[in-house]
Structures are given as C-alpha cells and as structure tokens.
Amino acid sequence: MLTVSIYRYNPEVDEEPYMQDFEVDTHGKDVMVLDVLEKLKIEDPTLVYRRSCREGVCGSDGMNISGKNGLACITPLSKAVKKNKLIIRPLPGLPVIRDLVIDMSQFYAQYEKIQPYMINNTAAPAIERLQSQEERAKLDGLYECILCACCSTACPSFWWNPDKFIGPSGLLQAYRFLADSRDTATEERLAKLDDPFSVFRCHGIMNCVQVCPKGLNPTRAIGHIRNMLIRSAT
C-alpha cells in the first residue's frame, strides 16, 4: 500500500489548509501520479485538481509532487515516491483556490505583458511569411512551452515579486518572439524589459530549468534576452 498525502483546502469549509493521508493500492504498477489522483477522486469526489489531456501537452496538472513541481500525468510513481510516501501539494507561490487548484491570474498577467503574439505591420505577402531553416531553428526549445507554470512557481524571484518579475515562463516566451525573424518589434519589446524587475530579478538560481517537464531552459533564454539588451544599450 502506498501512502498518499494530499494538501486539502476548501475555503468555504476549512479554516486552514491541512494534509490528508490516503492509502492506495497500485498493485505494484509504476503508474503516473495522475492515475493515483483519479483513483482517489472516485473514493473522495470532493478532491479537486485540474487535468485535461493526461499526456503532458495541455499543461493543466502542474503540481508540487514530493517537493518538486511537475505534471502529474507524466510523472511516474517511481520518480516521485520516497519511502513509500507520495506527497502532493499545489504549485507554490500563488493563491490556492481549492485543494490543488491555484489562481494563475498573476502568471497569465505576466505572460500578457510580453505581448505573446507576432508583431509585424509590414504588408502581408500573398501566401505566408517565410523563414529559412536556420531562422526557424532558433525557435526550437522555445515554442514547446505549454504554460504549465511549473517553472515560475519554482522560482524564488517570482514568489517574492509575481507582480513585477515576469518569471521564467513569460521570459522564455518573450525570447521566443524576440528571436523570431518575422517579428519586427524587437526594439520596442526590449525597451519594455530594461527595468530592475522584469528580467533582472532573475538571479540564475535555475530552479526553472530543473523542473520544466518539457525539458526547456528558461535560464538560457533569459541570458539571451540580457545579451540582446546589452547589445542594444551599449
């Protein structure tokens, strides 16, 4: 039997959050953490969490699994269970709505700030804006982000200033558009980032790289943004 300890909080009923223990029989199989939650949800329908695709593409089931942020649907028990115990908490640093569901407004507000869309006011060509293979290759490792927030909610700088520091996820996306050969707003984008908070609150702690379930590297993207700022400002 596996002991699963889950963070529970229903603001309408509970005065404060608490950890609830469940016993789960996994029949010795190395299933995903999400499978365990689904099983528990049948037992206790009041347990609340987000999930959709259950295959690591939608980014909705980011949670703190035995101390490390990750997607429940692609984290196998063998990677998460320590001493026969699985501990599940909501992603840290953002307000909890209920159980494992957090309020991601601040995370999205930062994403919105970096203008996550192509800006190009030149006349559109007849068919499409073309890129060379090299230009397209620059977007690899950037466009794959699924906005799961595992990285930003693992970042101490984001915990302390979620309203001012864009955070690893937003900055990875900022660089995705800075690096895009079809985007013409590079200078305007850079100008919005050169304050002591937006980018420079990153102290290179690299928690973000450690947890990204898609294997992306926000710290490297932040370094690229910094280099672009240095190039344009000196």
């Binding site: 050169d194 304050d195 002591p196 420079f200 910094r226 240095i230 400002a233």
Partner: peptide
C-alpha cells in the same frame, strides 16, 4: 541605476 541592465552591469 534605475535601469536593470545598468545595475546588472
């Protein structure tokens, strides 16, 4: 320095 970049540098 008011600017993040100049502080960083």
């Amino acid at each position: 320095g008011r600017s993040g970049l100049s502080d960083w540098l």
